[in-house]
Design a protein around this nucleic acid. Structure first.
Length: 430
RNA sequence: UCCUCGGUAGCUCAAAGGAAGAGCAUCUGACUGUUAAUCAGGUGGUUGCAGGUUCGAGUCCUGCCCGAGGAGCCA
């Protein structure tokens, strides 16, 4: 008898199969037992009766707890009453383990309880759908970059110094020396980029900021491409193409999951590059018109970013941010004083920034000035400055926040549901 | 770090300062097409912690702990 996955069940209509999984839920009505079986790829309803099911298996069903692990053998049957179009007539059940009452019930739960049980919560339907979309998004982004000739070269997690200097870092004892946990692969990317031309890294960024918002984690994952001999325009085009490709691929391959999430995909399916662009000044003006006051020169706060992102139906870009609110390595815009060759890509429907990037300063003198101006330790950046001493070239890139793009595409409100095990202020369990 | 709200059964929540309750889960029973099944019954409590006010505190006061929403910071 074939062991099949529920996602492939339609190919086995009329055949006897074996499903290896867990009890998602069960119901009964007189002499009939309904068993919802999940196997990680989907959920199918098994129907057991005294007529079709062995005596031992049938009587055992009443003792099964939710999430008991079972191997079910039965006949795949097309049935219009099923949400997936197929059911399983249960012949026999083998119980692998069945012991404790499962704490998560089909009724509602609070956030704290669910996060304390995150290791179990990920078995639930909505979490299952979100994390499957996450996996698809990561695959899509990497495919896109590989197709464009980018090489994946990982950046280190242990670093000797602050990458951007601006944010609070986690520190660790590194054989008696103080080390910091990476907050971005950016600087190392610039080194590999000069060695390989087009590169990207994908890994966790760790930030000890005491942020307590729906769009922040202390550990978040970024895909960061970097290109040599490239300008702002090249980075923007790459970002647009990547987001467009990713959205359409998720729509094509993860329709089932988006349905589970009840995601309205109308806006997503109409997305096409190029995306609207506005310069920083224009964005500030627009935010003020929308009723969230802010001054020229300030960065967008959460309320500002939200109203702006709510006013768009498509992803869009803000370009040419002021020097003062961007990292030291951003290239100055020589045509407008105080501005940089930078861009953010924001998701619509109020989601906001998912990508930040731009051109990097490649003149060693300018870079040193920026480092001094921000009181960063020059010594720590010696290797980085070397990149400008030996064959420096214009280069550009960006970072894509995986959890944020997952939140947007899934239509999930809080970013904590977009990663298997979220790390947040005051939360490190499980 | 700041502001606001909250902490009562395993879970989600009620309870004018006057006898701690409901729904779900669990247990017992009924039901041959249920979809968060339904119906009947049962079990289940140191009301976050420590003090205080009061004849009497889940409820009021003080301190602490924990959580949520938001701000700032940021991707």
């Amino acid at each position: 008898m074939d062991w099949v996955y529920i996602e492939d069940i339609k190919r086995f209509a009329g055949k006897e199969v074996e499903i290896k999984g867990w009890v998602y839920n069960k119901r009964s009505s007189g002499g009939i037992r309904f068993l919802l079986i999940r196997d990680g790829t989907g959920i199918i309803q098994g129907v057991a009766t005294e007529k079709d099911t062995t005596h031992e298996s049938f009587s055992m069903i009443d003792d099964l707890k939710r999430e008991a692990s079972i191997i079910v053998r039965g006949l795949v049957r097309e049935d219009s009453r099923s949400p997936i179009g197929f059911e399983l007539t249960v012949k026999s059940i083998e119980v692998i383990q069945n012991q404790k009452d499962y704490p998560i019930t089909p009724k509602s739960h609070g956030v704290d309880f669910l996060l304390q049980n995150r290791h179990l919560w990920i078995r639930s339907k909505l979490q299952w759908a979100v994390l499957r979309v996450r996996a698809e998004i990561i695959r899509a982004v990497e495919n896109y970059l590989w197709d464009k000739g980018f090489l994946k070269l990982d950046a280190p997690i242990f670093t000797p110094s602050a990458c951007e200097g601006t944010t609070t870092l986690f520190s660790a004892d590194y054989f008696g020396e103080k080390a910091y946990l990476s907050q971005s692969g950016q600087l190392y990317n610039e080194a590999t980029c000069m060695a390989f031309g087009r590169v990207y890294c994908f890994g966790p960024s760790l930030r000890a900021e005491k942020s307590k918002t729906r769009r922040h984690l202390t550990e978040f994952w970024q895909v960061e491409p970097e290109m040599a001999y490239a300008y702002l325009e090249d980075a923007i085009k790459l970002a647009e193409g990547m987001v467009e490709y990713t959205v359409h691929r998720v729509l094509a391959n993860r329709k089932r999951e988006l349905d589970v999430l009840e995601r309205d995909t109308n806006l997503l399916s109409s997305i096409s590059a190029p995306f609207p662009r506005i310069r920083y000044e224009e964005a500030v003006k627009r935010v003020n018109e929308l009723g969230e006051l802010m001054k020229l020169g300030e960065d967008f706060g959460a309320p500002q970013e939200t109203v702006l992102a709510e006013s768009y139906d498509s992803p869009f870009m803000i370009t040419h941010f002021p020097e003062d609110i961007k990292a030291f390595y951003m290239k100055k815009d020589l045509s407008t004083s105080g501005r940089t060759l930078s861009f953010d890509l924001l998701a619509p429907e109020g989601y906001g920034e998912i990508i930040g990037g731009g051109e990097r300063e490649f003149d060693v003198g300018e870079l040193k000035k920026n480092i001094e101006k921000r009181n960063l330790p020059m010594e720590a950046f010696k290797w980085y400055l070397d990149l400008r001493e030996y064959g420096s070239v214009p280069h550009a890139g960006f970072g894509l926040g995986i959890e944020r793009i997952v939140a947007w595409i899934c239509g999930v409100k809080h970013i904590r549901e977009t990663i298997p095990f979220p790390r947040m202020l005051g939360r490190i369990y499980p």
